[in-house]
């Protein structure tokens, strides 16, 4: 028991902010996974007789302009949001991890070239890039994921490169080299474990950003196709009819707020626990 308290999970569970964050995330994940079971209505079922219904025992969050149950659509939308977020962050993170370590550990010219590449991508406004890519590619989740990956992997690359550079000439690495350790051993046994901490913090912090990008693209009509239940599409529907049925917009915003809070708090808690400087000050 005492040993568990010193593990990362043990330390997180001792942090009220982390517990709150994990509870929110668990709620979102479970509701998304069990959306088909929990949803009281078919999220795509149109019922024009009941459109714009107020929140009630039948429709917990009311209905939209086609009489579809908003709560059921938000549950399904959560599945899409988490799928896009986890997939995009994983791919972007992996690309960033590889390129970042190459930049940090490779020759100077490669570092300079990759750095230039990272900074060019980071300088480009996300939404403009998303609009440009969406115009060239077919609409769908794949496009959303590609947009997010392209706009975010450079950030991981930057962080990983910085960490790698700081470790590259550390004494224990030099000692390993002097003893004839292979490149792979140095990277996988020493560099990688040390960059994973900041990497996961960044990933956790980025998840709500990705969810917001997906919602934003769907809101602008360049995300998931119409009819697909997504948080952004619900926000768009709510915006179109905000004067008569504000609850659609409010309902669509609620899971976004929860997801943002949950992942941001988790990221902060992870940072507190994984960054030795911050741990000493607590």
């Amino acid at each position: 028991m005492s040993a568990f308290r010193h593990t990362l999970m043990g330390r997180l569970l001792a942090d009220p902010l982390a517990v709150f964050a994990m509870a929110i995330i668990a709620l979102l994940v479970v509701s998304a996974l069990l959306a088909d079971v929990i949803a009281p209505h078919d999220p795509s079922a149109m019922n024009l007789a009941d459109r714009f219904a107020s929140p009630s025992a039948t429709y917990w969050m009311g209905t939209d302009n086609l009489g579809r149950d908003t709560f059921s659509r938000l549950l399904q939308g959560g599945r899409i949001a988490l799928y896009v977020a986890l997939t995009a962050v994983s791919i972007a993170g992996l690309i960033g991890l590889i390129l970042g370590m190459l930049a940090g550990f490779g020759p100077r010219w490669l570092d300079n070239a990759l750095l230039f590449f990272f900074d060019t991508l980071r300088a480009y406004p996300t939404i403009i890039l998303a609009l440009a890519l969406a115009a060239l590619m077919p609409r769908g989740l794949g496009t959303v994921i590609i947009v997010v990956v392209i706009t975010s992997f450079a950030e991981y690359g930057r962080v990983v490169r910085t960490q790698t550079l700081s470790l590259k000439n550390a004494e224990f690495i030099l000692a390993e080299r002097a003893m004839g350790a292979s490149f792979a051993r140095i990277v996988f046994h020493h560099i990688l474990p040390n960059v994973l901490g900041p990497f996961f913090i960044l990933a956790a912090m980025n998840l709500p950003v990705v969810i917001t990008i997906e919602a934003g693209m769907s809101f602008l009509g360049i995300g998931v196709p119409p009819g697909t239940p997504s948080w952004g599409a619900t926000l768009k529907d709510g915006f179109d009819y905000i004067r008569t049925t504000p609850w659609i917009l409010l309902s669509g915003g609620l899971p976004l707020i929860l997801a943002t809070l949950g992942f941001t708090f988790l990221g902060e808690a992870l940072r507190d626990q994984l960054d030795p400087r911050l741990r000493k000050t607590r």
């Binding site: 149109m46 302009n65 086609l66 609409r139 009509g221 119409p226």
Partner: peptide
Amino acid sequence: DVLNTVIHTTAAQVMQATMAQAGIDLSISV
């Protein structure tokens, strides 16, 4: 394929929902 107006995207979604009853899967491009 529809223009990104509320009217035409709504119309397309109604078609999508109703045509499924006849075994027609309609995808919408806005």
